[in-house]
């Protein structure tokens, strides 16, 4: 499969300076990632591991104090775009029509004093030369295709339920048939039933449009349902990357093993153990492998050297000396 976007050695740090003390938070530290055409790539990891920051870098919405220290990020459409150095015009040109974004917490992403219809108009008219009645017609048709009532168009955001608002936001993000969609925690803060509906909606859109979906979530259940491939982040580093089946059946990295272990199973009623310790603070991460203070298999080398991401065959990559040492 062709590659639609590729990140190489991305380093995105939050650099703040107050009263002469510089503080650097290495939220994304040397991450390389390939996104293949028409796949659903899940990016998983616990809170504060750099998921959202990685997404910002992939999307190219870098605002201070976030800074790209090193690395490249490219989209490959008909032509390639260097995401980290796009001009304003280029951004306007590719956003929504080629690359789109479903934000975290749709509670507040819709302008509270504008009707949904007007928000749709604002977003569409920015990219296509259509007048108000045309954009209204277009969005009404699209909402109906997604199984949403056209009534939504005349509502204000606060008049919609959380689930409706999330669906309207998904519709808003995908209305111009983008090839590449980034979704940041699209199911967070929704109840399980609504989550299911939203997951189905995302999958339906992805399949119908043949688009690529990059899904960031801490919820392994959502990934199991949706993703073709999963990338596991830990403390700003990519620790494992494989197809969904391999991640769940044969996790190689101890962190991934813990993650999978902690998921509830229908046939098993024993208590789930949690990972000992806490995730490290990213302004002062541990030397060597960042997981070693919590790892039950930590070796000498883990405290000194950073394990490289190694392909174990079949695209199953992991960054752990346990596995890579065995192999060499």
């Amino acid at each position: 499969m062709a590659i639609i976007a590729e990140a190489k050695h991305l380093k995105a740090y939050y650099i703040t300076q107050s009263y002469g003390i510089e503080r650097t938070v290495k939220a994304v530290d040397d991450i390389s990632l390939e996104i293949k055409e028409k796949e659903i790539l899940g990016i998983a990891g616990e809170s504060g591991c750099g998921k959202s920051t990685l997404l910002k870098a992939l999307l190219g919405t870098i605002d201070p104090p976030l800074k790209i220290v090193d690395g490249t990020m490219q989209y490959e459409f008909e032509e390639s775009y260097n995401v980290l150095s796009m001009s304003k015009d280029e951004i306007k040109q590719i956003r929504w029509t080629k690359v789109s974004y479903i934000p975290q917490g749709s509670m507040h992403v819709l302008n509270p004093v504008r009707k949904i219809r007007d928000t749709f108009h604002d977003f569409i008219a920015t990219h296509q030369n259509l007048n108000k009645s045309e954009t209204t017609q277009l969005s009404q048709d699209y909402l109906q295709k997604l199984g949403l009532s056209g009534q939504v168009m005349n509502a204000y955001p606060h008049q919609l339920s959380g689930g409706m608002r999330q669906r309207a936001t998904i519709a808003l993000a995908t209305i111009l048939s983008p090839k590449l969609v980034f979704a940041d925690e699209p199911t967070t803060a929704l109840d399980v039933l609504v989550q299911r509906g939203v997951v189905q909606l995302l999958k339906e859109i992805q399949q119908r449009e043949g688009s690529t979906l990059v899904l960031v979530s801490h919820d392994m259940g959502v990934h199991a349902n949706l993703a073709d491939r999963i990338a596991i982040l830990y403390a700003g580093k990519l620790v494992e990357e494989a197809d969904t089946r391999s991640i769940f059946k044969n996790p190689l990295h101890p962190y991934t093993q813990y993650l999978i272990e902690s998921l509830p199973r229908l046939d098993d009623k024993t208590e789930r153990s949690s990972i000992p310790g806490r995730p490290p603070a990213l302004d002062n991460p541990p030397e060597g492998c960042r997981f070693h203070p919590r790892c039950p298999h930590a070796m000498d080398i883990c405290t000194k050297e950073v394990p490289p991401l190694v392909d174990m065959g079949g695209g199953h990559k992991t960054a752990c000396f346990l596995v890579s040492e065995e192999k060499t």
Partner: peptide
Amino acid sequence: DYVHYAETAG
């Protein structure tokens, strides 16, 4: 968030 989102959309 709504201003950020509008900016993201260009």
